[in-house]
Simulated scan of single mutants.
Amino acid sequence: MQNKIKKNALVVLMLAVLSLMAVKIFISLQNSPLLPSTTQAQVSQEALPQYEVSKAPKATPRPQVAAQPTPLPQKNSPTAEPFEEPDEEEADTPKEFVLCEHIVSGETLYEFTGQIRLINKGSQTVSGWSVNWEYEDDSTILEATDVALAGNNPYTGEYLSWNADIEPGKTVTFSFTGLKGGDTAPLRVRVSGSICI
């Protein structure tokens, strides 16, 4: 009987010890830092710095410019020159056709005589004339008649007041005497001038 009571007392004691240990374990779990309370979590979140995320600005669309074609350089096109009609006076004025000749009419041992003959072959009167000639053999003119003579090889003969005009088909002649530059009188002497053909 006494052994039974001792066993029961021992069981009750063990249960009491186990209960006490369970209470201690429970209390220690309540005070453990591994499980922070809601208040501490909120405080820690409030203590953290808050950063605002700024939104990137929207890209402004660029205005579109229509591409214009570059004009090609134009080639220099030939410009038509205005047609100028000839003056009526120039069109109506015929050219002067005067046959100009140098003629040897005689000679002596040292001298010769000659003429310049102007024959109007045109259809209009020639008013005013001037002719030129030159001797290749260095012949020299000593005197001349019916002409205004100038120069010294080459020579120039111009009209006088009374023989300035040469009518169509008419002839004007002036004479001279010269000193020969060689054994013979000068031949094939060319006479030139603005009226000569």
Score class of each variant (00 low, 15 high):
Glu89Asn: 13
Gln124Trp: 11
Ile119Phe: 08
Val104Phe: 06
Ile116Phe: 10
Glu136Asn: 06
Asn120Met: 15
Glu107Arg: 02
Glu90Pro: 02
Ala91Asp: 13
Phe97Gln: 13
Trp129Thr: 01
Ile141Thr: 06
Trp129Val: 02
Asp146Phe: 13
Pro94Asp: 15
Ala150Gln: 05
Thr108Cys: 05
Glu107Gln: 11
Ser130His: 01
Asp92Ser: 04
Cys100Tyr: 09
Glu101Val: 02
Asp87Arg: 09
Thr140Asp: 08
Ser139Met: 05
Glu143Met: 08
Glu136Ile: 02
Ser123Asn: 09
Glu136Met: 04
Cys100Ser: 14
Gly128Phe: 00
Ile116Met: 09
Phe112Trp: 08
Leu142Pro: 05
Ala150Ser: 07
Asp87Met: 07
Thr145Tyr: 03
Ala150Asp: 06
Cys100Asn: 08
Asn132Ile: 02
Lys95Phe: 04
Ala144Asn: 03
Thr140Ser: 10
Glu96Gln: 11
Lys95Gly: 05
Gly128Tyr: 01
Glu136Ala: 09
Gly114Asp: 09
Gly122Phe: 10
His102Ile: 00
Thr93His: 11
Ala148Asp: 12
Leu109Asp: 10
Ser127His: 04
Ser127Gly: 02
Glu134Ile: 00
Val126Trp: 13
Val104Thr: 12
His102Arg: 05
Gln115Lys: 14
Glu101Thr: 06
His102Val: 02
Glu89Lys: 14
Val126Lys: 11
Asn132Asp: 11
Thr140Leu: 13
Cys100Pro: 06
Val147Ile: 09
Gln115Phe: 09
Thr113Cys: 07
His102Thr: 01
Val131Trp: 00
Gly151Ile: 01
Gly114Cys: 12
Arg117Leu: 10
Glu143Ala: 10
Pro86Phe: 03
Ile116Arg: 06
Glu89Cys: 02
Asp87Leu: 04
Val104Leu: 05
His102Pro: 01
Val126Gly: 09
Ser130Cys: 03
Val104Gln: 04
Glu136Leu: 06
Glu134Asp: 03
Tyr110Ile: 11
Ser123Cys: 02
Asp92Gly: 02
Glu88Ser: 02
Lys95His: 08
Gly151Phe: 00
Ser127Pro: 00
Ile141Gln: 03
Val104Glu: 09
Ile103Ser: 15
Glu134Ala: 06
Pro94Asn: 15
Thr145Leu: 01
Arg117Lys: 15
Ile141Leu: 14
Asn152Leu: 05
Lys95Ala: 07
Glu89His: 08
Thr93Leu: 12
Gln124Tyr: 10
Gln124Leu: 13
Glu134His: 04
Asp92Leu: 04
Leu99Asn: 13
Glu143Leu: 03
Pro86Ser: 06
Tyr135Thr: 01
Gly151Leu: 00
Val147Asn: 01
Trp133Phe: 15
Leu99Val: 07
Val98His: 12
Glu143Val: 07
Phe112Cys: 05
Asp146Asn: 14
Asn120Glu: 14
Arg117Ser: 15
Leu99Glu: 15
Asn132Trp: 09
Ser127Asn: 10
Asn152Ser: 09
Asp146Tyr: 13
Thr145Ile: 05
Val98Ala: 07
Thr140Phe: 10
Leu118Asn: 04
Val126Tyr: 11
Gly106Phe: 03
Lys95Arg: 09
Glu111Ser: 12
Val98Asn: 12
Asn120Ser: 14
Leu118Phe: 05
Asn120Tyr: 13
Phe97Lys: 15
Ser123Asp: 11
His102Phe: 12
Tyr135Glu: 01
Thr145Gln: 06
Tyr110Glu: 13
Asp138Cys: 08
Asp138Ala: 12
Thr113Tyr: 13
